[in-house]
Nucleic acid binder design. Structure first.
Lengths: 236, 236
DNA sequence: GTTGCCGCATCTACGTTGTAGACTTTACCC
DNA sequence: GGGTAAAGTCTACAACGTAGATGCGGCAAC
């Protein structure tokens, strides 16, 4: 009955104080559960029990909010820049990022898309951290700076590509257990897409982790021998 | 002065008849010139001299319109599924797709993002064509179906990853000719990002085509030897 | 105790978006 | 000329991001 002002009880603030972390965490929650489009300012405000406008205190606008979510996710990616075994470390990072992506599939479009419209130096620092740390790892392992950059590009490119690929093949409707249907392949004209349709069973058995691993192996050893000719390779 | 009705002259329709191709082409034009956000139904309608609502005859909704644009771009990618030299063909496709991406950078987010929310079988057929044709190419070269799929995944993953990577490093402001500034790197705290800042010159000299080529070489020969152990490799 | 201030939160309001549904116009065939 | 189907238009609405004015609570100075 009383107005919701100055609560008489306990004394713990009657409304949680709200903070950037809190906002971003809740935002990530919404995105994870209902997708990017569901994350509107109004919706997020409601989710936090606050006026939508209050969010602008913690993110300049919606785009910045999305950047914050990317950052939040990428901060979950542990990197050991001092690992003496650079190849093992890169392999580990790859698997960790893959796992992160599978946990937050709705965030992947952000990870991939936002940097396309933001110059390197203006990106959220959290999203540049992996780059810096991996460069550090490689240079520490004996690569020349340019060589490190070269390896990083090939490695990260492949990694992101793999993740996108794997998510694209993700099964939509686990209720449906006939592969052709599950992937919607039955809609494809058989004449024009014979190979694809015939591959339905193989598509269903995709082991993303294994394929990632094999790709990384090929790429890293290939890069290593390629660079060993230029003198930009690791010392040992 | 006469009302714009039934033109007296010639007899050629006084308004171009409008068609899906026409709509999509104009849409691509807008996206290329002003980015994805500029492509609103109203804007596109205006661009075509028609009521925005008329567009719904040719695309079910905005999302479908975007799919159409993806399709339009991918249709520009020539593939020779009967090329006897599968490695050369894959290399060629890679370079062609890279060129396409550089010509239509604003479309790349679509290419990469839309399939994430659409099950395989429900995608625009045009976007599945490359997949089918590449499978055909590989199987024709002697790969087993499963082997072909394996190669395709590694190959296409790497390719998309590379394209994303390269576009992310794209120079924003060619007016500015100091690299640190051009990429906005001067904003980075020197303590936390020493490697990255030191690499500014190297970042500027990125030769995307060469790096793509090297990556493809490594990957294809790696895949070949890997598969040659399983009997799923090409016949010759 | 009173006053002033400042950071946080809220309220109101505006312009823009996608698109449903009813309507009008056009082209054509019998 | 009358009827049918397709193509295009009009009107209207709910939801969005966010600018700008307003309100509110606690702390510092006096």
């Amino acid at each position: 009955m009383g107005s919701p002002k100055t609560s008489a009880a306990g004394g713990t603030a009657r409304k949680a104080p709200l903070s950037r972390e809190l906002v971003l965490t809740k935002a990530l929650e919404v995105v994870d559960e209902e997708g990017l489009d569901a994350l509107t300012m109004r919706r997020l405000g409601q989710e936090l029990g606050r006026d939508p406008m209050s969010l602008y205190r913690y993110a300049e606008n919606r785009a910045a909010l999305l950047d914050g979510v990317s950052e939040l996710v990428l901060n979950e990616l542990p990197i050991e820049p001092d690992d003496p075994d650079w190849k093992a470390q890169l392999r580990l990072i790859a698997h960790n990022l893959r796992s992160l992506a599978l946990e937050h599939p709705n965030v992947v479009p952000l990870l991939v898309t936002r940097p396309l419209s933001t110059p390197l130096g203006l990106r959220p620092l959290g999203t540049l951290r992996p780059l810096e740390q991996i460069l550090s790892l490689l240079i520490g392992a004996g690569f020349s700076p340019a060589g490190a950059l070269h390896v990083y590009r090939a490695y990260y490119g492949f990694l992101y590509g793999h993740i996108l690929n794997e998510l694209q093949e993700f099964v939509v409707d686990p209720e449906e257990n006939e592969v052709l249907l599950r992937l919607g392949l039955h809609r494809l004209p058989a004449k024009e897409f014979p190979r694809l349709r015939a591959l339905a069973p193989a598509l269903a058995e995709y082991d993303g982790s294994a394929e990632l691993d094999q790709g990384i192996t090929i790429l890293l050893s290939g890069l290593e021998t390629q660079l060993s000719l230029t003198g930009a390779n690791p010392t040992d």
